[in-house]
Amino acid sequence: MDAQVHPHADAHGAHAHSPHLQHHFDSLEQQFDSGKLGMWLFLATEVLLFAGLFCAYSVYRANHPEIFIYAHQFLDKFWGAVNTGILIASSLTMAWAVRCSQIGKQTGLVICLCLTLLGGVGFLCVKYVEYKAKWEHGLLWASQYNPSHHGEGHDEAAAGDGHEDHSEAPDPSAAHAATPPAEAAAADPAAVTPTVIMTTSAGVVVERSKILPAAMGPMELAPDTTGHDLHGKEPQNVQTFFSIYFMMTGLHGVHVIIGMLAIAWVLIRSLKGHFSPAYFTPVDLVGLYWHLVDLIWIYLFPLLYLIH
């Protein structure tokens, strides 16, 4: 790893250098400690990055619990649980890989890293299956939210036939029009919606002047659908749930991909035999990152999938 040796290393290195010791550190231990502190700080920034989304989640869930209770049933608990299991298992193999590198077990290190990588691939495959189902059923973020096939969309979910009233497919030419709130208003005069959320002329920009009164206002002004049974009418602004769902899982998915790239990098280096009990910092740091990615999912799963 010649890139790690600074050309000026000779100028002030009286003591024997490990090839992995950079010039501005006095000892490998100092270098390792610095790397570790740096990684923990970086993980703190990652937590704070997600904290923004968790905060948005909390605000919307506190103000509009009915949206979350209604919409979470369209998420697939089974696949969510499978993915949780996959990630926890991959965290185990990652920890095992770190241990292997610490005690110098080359083969074990390579195997464990491969298994971890495989876990990442598995996670993404499951995520693909889930996203595809959402896509097909129009359960997307706000501007694309168009739940045309509710009834068929969630056989696995606990929901009953209560959604069938929305499930008759709307006119395909109006694919982008968000019709359910209008239907809801028509069907239930008590849920007052003086303006339709969005009027879009096929595929063009959303008209922005029609702000829903009180929908986002103080809680007590919002139509109270809390405690309504699940099979009742669809509450307003269900799209917000899917916006948050896609942002959280999407950002997490990006982190999984970054983590997999990092693991692949460490895997290549370990195949080249770079690591030894004297130098295993990259394995350790990538391991920390992977555990964080895992940990975030462990929070996402119950918050999004297991609301009831």
């Binding site: 959320i197 959303v206 922005r208 029609k210 799209q239 917000t240």
Partner: peptide, 9 residues
């Protein structure tokens, strides 16, 4: 995505 835009809720 409609998290900040009032037109999308």
């Amino acid at each position: 995505v409609g998290i900040f835009d009032p037109a999308l809720g």
